[in-house]
Amino acid sequence: MARVYIDKEDRIITIAAGTVRELLQKLKIPSNTVIVTRNDEIIIETEKLNQKDNLKIIYVVSGG
């Protein structure tokens, strides 16, 4: 299970997903609204995830 911090909601979740794209689909987050990092390095949608990954989902869209 990967550990994921979502900055917009300021919460941490644990979730199983094969790739970044699958992770975002499970969380219903459009990939065009966020960037994802692993150990502070950006990873793209096609990147495979490992069980013990520490990930961050950073929203790049602003409201208003």
Binding site: I35, Y59, V60, S62
Partner: peptide, 21 residues
């Protein structure tokens, strides 16, 4: 796109965190 701009700002360290009106 917003993603391109957000990524550019993030990689350049322009913004300190997520702020939404």
């Amino acid at each position: 796109t917003e993603k391109e701009i957000g990524l550019f700002a993030f990689l350049n360290g322009f913004i300190s965190g997520y702020h939404e009106c």
